[in-house]
Design a binder for these strands. Structure first.
Length: 904
RNA sequence: GCCCAGUUGGCGCAGUGGUAGCGCGUUCCCUUGACAUGGGAAAGGUCACAGGUUCAAAUCCUGUACUGGGCACCA
């Protein structure tokens, strides 16, 4: 008996205490157990760009729920922990930090120092993240935390690169790539975001050498200096005779030819298109077809080069304004119209992308994609929800080669080396701010012969030891794509790899399906012959309350650490899971967490109350095979129903439904009814009996809830354990409850429904006529049939208790006393004498309203039952159901009518 | 332009063939033996619109509108 527990649940101490114990006991440590079935999840490794946000909160809580559930089902669970170095994103964070705190650029530090600064940051930020894992109660195996840049992962990256190089998948080539001027690096196609912006379309006049001028439309006048031709559609009658002639580029003295190409649409703009191969992807293709010059006029820094003197060094945006101004002055600007142009932006910094001609490393995708496509089509990888299947297939079908080189410093350096003697022709050197010479650029076309090596090699040709590594690093997604195998030590055929791979499920956000999920499928199949996961569960984005994406600049970010500190990790978890519908975004506001916090408190107080009332020294026994009391049979039945439904919903990944089921059972059935009914029994010889039911059901519910709210359930379970036999040290080591169908008791549930209905009806009347809760009343009940009479009579006590009735008379022939209100539940009339309290007009209105509803229902059923087609074609049970409802409603109608008549 | 979601009480959302539920909010009553982070009760919805299938449609089909998203194009 414990009466000293505080009234409100305080999560803070409990959570700190438990997470520490779990860690000390190594509860989440994964170990191969051949006797068991493996259940593996690899965490989507969070970038080390800062602390975790609500998106991580949702994503990891979903995984934790699955992990704990499967662990309790007896599987050998391994939830692999780790973080991602996060290439550009992390570099940007550190660069900003350096600029802000020390007014330094990465170039001021130099490459080596900069990289070591990021490593220092990794230790700091990584620890903060691991700490958050623990705070949230995520059952990650933290005894072995992986990082995408640690040695094992680096070796995997190299093994992959080498393998693909040997297979001829990796090549270097000059291409028009997506260049972020701000991040000064190449990006892959899917790292570019598209949006529409209000812009302008300028019509420019190009003077013909023979006086035949041509007008073109462009959104990028600053690129005219890179024009190599004007193209028209071959079928365009307007320009047919001009093809082959030359026109002059405005503001220059250069002449370019007019060519015909299918890529030009007759109906757009003027039907004539300027071709700028070095600064536009379509133009690049046209240029290749027509063997045009690729003149570059915008540098990697976004400044103008190779233009007339005046514009050299100008920023691209300024140059646009100046060009337009000068064109106008020269009378060559024909028209300026408003136009919504598509702007491509960097997914990391949001700045406009510049198509940029440069040499980059690529991976050939055809074979890799074909195998992955096949796996997805055959549903060897199943997407949940499935509406992402088609887009993913489509992506595999139309995939471009993957640009894997990035011109940044933080990441896996490309494992390609050059000899300064043998490859010197292809190498460009530069000096850093410290005056140190470094390899800044490599050009294959000029004959650089690479050496693929993990560590610095000796030149196999000349024996030179001062070989130089390619300056670029790999796309951060390169290492991420290997995650499901690299975490287990691939390319080594480790015991873990053999046992835990393929993983069971991947839980991630739909926004990285192409960036990450698709690529893991490709590498997984390519290197192991097996898909990396059988199921991909896609979670939505956690948005703010009004559905906006959370972002620092909008100031609408909700910090999980704040919420956890304020309401507890369990409440944060519960609120997220209770809204987790597969693939759907969650509008997240603080009120949802308050509800969750209240639920925690409810569970806690239920337990507190039970413990306060168990008689000293009571030995709680397992549930008996049978119980006589209706409420006992009922709660056990409800419990098993809840477990059945919860399990089903978890298996189908409907976490919100699973959580809702347990919430309603615990609050709506267990607390609102069963505990209320148990109260008077504590003082009787039934104390041991009712206590054992309460404690057993509560303990079972705690087990069922444990994957949702690990802390509070563990804490309460610890309080119950002294009364229970054969409990495990931690709930995680218990078995997840299983529904016992033999305990489902339809009769008890039906009888209970009757009693609840009668009690509610009485309460409604009391409330309507403002009968103070303290004043006990007298009630007459006229049961509709013998069966109901029996049930009601048997359970008289509890009707009296919950409806606060002093004197209850159950009698089929009961007459309505004068000055009384009437309530009807399914044909059973309830009379409540209310001398002096009753308001006849109000009562009349109330009864009339109820009568209206019943008549509606009767009409409806009557229509159905008069319909031959319904009788013939509807399932029998359906027809029978309608009949019963009709009968009930008719009885109810009669009772209400009588009541109204008596009132007059 | 193509494709995919969504549209349900004031707000946020469940519900996939038998005329609707939850949480929050609102109104009223209540410190009754755990919990006011609580208890009891009430008000509030013709389930976006138009057709169709069916005995029966919020639920299935077709179309429309609006919102969000993906892909392609974008001079």
């Amino acid at each position: 008996m414990n009466t000293t527990l505080p009234k409100a649940y305080d999560p803070k101490n409990v959570e700190d205490k438990l997470s520490k114990i779990w860690k000390e006991k190594g509860l989440f440590k994964a170990q191969v157990d051949e006797k068991k079935q493996p259940y593996t999840i690899v965490i989507p490794p969070p970038n080390i760009t800062g602390v975790l946000h609500m998106g991580h909160g949702l994503n990891n809580t979903l995984q934790d729920m699955l992990v704990r559930y499967h662990r309790m089902k007896g599987e050998c669970v391994n939830w692999v922990a780790g973080t991602d170095h996060g290439g550009i994103a992390t570099q940007n964070v550190i660069e900003k930090k350096l600029a802000k705190e020390q007014h330094l650029s990465r170039h001021d530090l130099g490459r080596e120092k900069f990289v070591s600064t990021v490593w220092d940051w990794y230790k700091e930020c990584g620890n903060a993240i691991y700490n958050q894992f623990q705070k949230m109660g995520w059952a990650l195996d933290q005894s072995n935390i992986r990082f995408t840049m640690d040695e094992t992962r680096a070796k995997a990256v190299f093994a992959c690169f080498k393998n693909w190089w040997d297979k001829g998948y990796i090549y270097r080539g000059k291409r028009l790539i997506n260049w972020c001027v701000r991040c000064s690096t190449a990006l892959s196609d899917i790292e570019v975001e598209h949006s529409e912006h209000a812009g302008k379309l300028w019509h420019l006049l190009y003077k013909g050498e023979n006086g035949q001028d041509i007008i073109i439309a462009t959104t990028r006048p600053e690129t005219i200096f890179a024009d190599a031709a004007i193209a028209v559609n071959p079928d365009d009658e307007r320009y047919k005779d001009m093809v082959g002639k030359k026109v002059q580029i405005p503001l220059t003295d250069r002449f370019i030819p007019i060519i015909a190409d299918e890529a030009v649409e007759k109906d757009f703009g003027t039907g004539a298109l300027k071709i700028t191969p070095a600064h536009d992807a379509t133009d690049y293709e046209v240029g290749k077809r027509h063997n045009l010059e690729t003149r570059v006029v915008i540098s990697s820094a976004g400044k103008m080069i190779n233009t007339p003197e005046k514009y050299i060094g100008m920023d691209r945006d300024l140059c646009r304004k100046e060009t337009v101004k000068d064109l106008d002055a020269a009378g060559l600007l024909v028209k300026e119209e408003k136009y919504n142009n598509a702007v491509s932006t960097c997914y990391r910094c949001g700045q406009p992308i510049e198509p940029y001609l440069s040499e980059q490393w690529f991976v050939k995708m055809d074979k890799l994609a074909a195998a992955a496509l096949d796996a997805v089509q055959k549903e060897e990888v199943k997407l949940v929800p499935s509406n992402w299947k088609a887009p993913l297939e489509n992506w595999f079908k139309n995939m471009q080669d993957w640009c894997i080189s990035r011109q940044i410093w933080w990441g896996h350096r490309i494992p390609v080396w050059y000899c300064p003697h043998c490859s010197a022709k292809g190498l460009t050197f530069a000096k850093d701010k410290q005056g140190k010479e470094y390899l800044s650029k490599v050009s294959f076309e000029e004959g650089a012969e690479p050496i693929i090596s993990y560590e610095q090699p000796v030149c196999p040709k000349c024996g030179c030891k001062e070989t130089l590594q390619d300056p670029d690093v790999l796309d951060t997604w390169f290492s991420s794509s290997l995650w499901p195998i690299s975490v287990f030590g691939w390319p080594e055929q480790t015991k873990d790899l053999n046992y835990f791979y393929p993983t069971s499920i991947l839980v991630t956000g739909y926004e990285i399906i192409y960036l990450w999920v698709a690529r893991m499928i490709m590498t997984g199949i390519d290197f192991t012959g097996k898909v990396p996961f059988k199921t991909v569960l896609l979670n939505g984005i956690v948005r703010d309350k009004s559905g906006q994406k959370m972002s620092k600049s909008k100031g609408n970010v909700v910090d999980p650490l704040d919420l956890t500190a304020k309401y507890g990790a369990d409440a944060v978890r519960f609120s997220l899971l209770s809204q987790a519908i597969t693939g759907k975004d969650i509008p997240y506001g603080e009120d949802s967490i308050i509800g969750a916090r209240n639920f925690c408190n409810k569970v806690y107080n239920a337990a507190r109350f039970i413990l306060m009332n168990v008689a000293e020294g009571t030995q709680i026994t397992p549930l008996q095979k049978e119980y006589k009391n209706l409420e006992d049979r009922w709660i056990i039945s409800r419990y098993n129903q809840a477990i059945k439904r919860t399990t089903k919903e978890i298996e189908n990944y409907n976490m919100a439904a699973a959580v809702d089921t347990l919430y309603r059972f615990l609050w709506g059935d267990f607390c609102d009814w069963y505990i209320e009914l148990a109260k008077p029994r504590f003082n009787t010889e039934e104390n041991a009996l009712v206590s054992s039911i309460l404690i057993n059901i509560l303990y079972g519910t705690l087990k069922a809830l444990h994957p949702v709210m690990p802390f509070i359930t563990e804490e309460i379970a610890n309080g119950l354990k002294p009364y229970l036999k054969d409990t495990k040290e931690f709930l995680l080591l218990e078995s997840y409850p299983v529904c016992d169908n033999s305990r489902i008791d339809d009769e008890a549930e039906k009888q209970m429904e009757l009693l609840q209905g009668v009690i509610s009806a009485v309460r409604t009347v009391r409330s309507q006529f403002n009968v103070p809760p303290a004043s006990k009343i007298k009630v007459f009940i006229a049961p509709k049939d013998k069966q109901e009479e029996l049930v009601l009579t048997k359970e008289q006590n509890f009707i009296q208790l919950l409806a606060k009735i002093d004197n209850l008379e159950i009698n089929p022939n009961a007459q309505k006393p004068a000055q009384s209100a009437t309530a009807v539940f399914a044909g059973t009339a309830i009379y409540i004498p209310l001398e002096g309290l009753i308001d006849f007009a109000k009562e009349q209105a109330r009864l009339q309203k109820e009568l209206g509803i019943v008549i509606n229902g009767i009409n409806n059923r009557t229509r159905m039952l008069e319909n031959k087609n319904f009788l013939e074609r509807a399932p029998k049970a359906q027809v029978e159901n309608a009949r019963q409802e009709l009968a009930q409603m008719q009885a109810k109608k009669a009772e209400i009518e009588t009541a109204i008549k008596d009132l007059a």
